[in-house]
Computed example of a mutant assay.
Amino acid sequence: MSKFVAAGETAFTAEHFSGRLPLFLAAAGVMVASGCSAIKPADSFTLLTELPPGFSIKGEASYVPRTGESCTVPAREGRNQPGKKFFKQDLKVEAQTARFEIPLISNEGGCPLVLKRFDYEVDAKYGRTRLNIGRDYAGISFVDKAISTSPITHQNTLQRNCQWLFRTAGPKNNISKILSCKAVAAPTTPEAIQRDELLGKSLTAIFSLAHEELPYMGDTWIKFPEGWKRCLGKSIEDPYGFCNGNTTNFKPFKMPDGRDCTVYPNCTEQGL
């Protein structure tokens, strides 16, 4: 179940759906309760986020005073964070589509607010431990009037291609992975979205995951038919391990599941 947490308001739960998010989400202890939103459908839009297997997402909607208003967003008081609304979709083993109703307007302390940004943090698991997580950030901007962008259609999409980048770290040359998600530009992809064009419409953010993994840093691995081999560098303890033309000397590494291996991702030349 996707969750919507509005700081300083009565929280409500939405059906299936998620910048650099504040630690507030994890530490604030905001109550999440089932219920009905006071936001009318005309004052919000539907955000659909398609996630690959093993992904989760957290979102943060940020609001600013409406153009022409002289009021300001009230200051944060403890766990109450005016001008912010938080969203979360938990990790699932299978692919999933998260669905949220995002308010386009809000009101804090009598100050009329409009949606300015939606920032999200995408997490993905690559191993069994809690540290075996890759993470990346992205966001969507909203404006009063769009500048040099295509009109929003009923099925408008924003697409990001994600890829695992592998590296070794520490004295045991443990494999760790970095998640990199890049925007895919298309003729219908707006840089900033005009708020009014989203009334009663849906916006879909599609995350795909590349089948092939690549080294995080250049000149540190060499690809062979059986897989990638980690260059030795100056010694087996060399934390950088640049190849520097040495295509015959390599060092073993440890996979996230604890195996000692010589070829990535097959572990050994025999593909075991």
Score class of each variant (00 low, 15 high):
144 D>I: 07
145 K>N: 13
145 K>G: 12
146 A>F: 00
149 T>D: 05
149 T>R: 04
151 P>E: 09
152 I>W: 01
153 T>K: 14
154 H>F: 10
156 N>E: 08
157 T>H: 04
157 T>M: 10
157 T>A: 07
158 L>R: 02
159 Q>G: 06
159 Q>M: 11
159 Q>H: 13
161 N>C: 10
162 C>T: 08
162 C>L: 08
162 C>Q: 07
163 Q>T: 11
165 L>S: 01
165 L>N: 05
167 R>K: 15
168 T>K: 07
168 T>P: 00
169 A>L: 13
169 A>I: 11
169 A>H: 11
170 G>Y: 03
171 P>L: 07
171 P>I: 08
172 K>T: 13
173 N>D: 11
173 N>F: 00
173 N>E: 06
173 N>S: 11
175 I>D: 02
175 I>E: 08
175 I>M: 09
176 S>A: 10
176 S>Y: 06
177 K>H: 07
178 I>R: 14
179 L>Q: 03
179 L>R: 08
179 L>C: 06
179 L>S: 01
181 C>L: 03
181 C>M: 04
182 K>F: 02
183 A>I: 13
185 A>K: 10
186 A>C: 12
186 A>I: 11
188 T>P: 02
189 T>L: 09
189 T>I: 12
190 P>C: 03
190 P>V: 05
190 P>I: 06
191 E>P: 05
191 E>F: 12
193 I>K: 00
193 I>C: 03
193 I>A: 02
194 Q>C: 05
194 Q>A: 08
195 R>H: 05
198 L>S: 06
201 K>V: 06
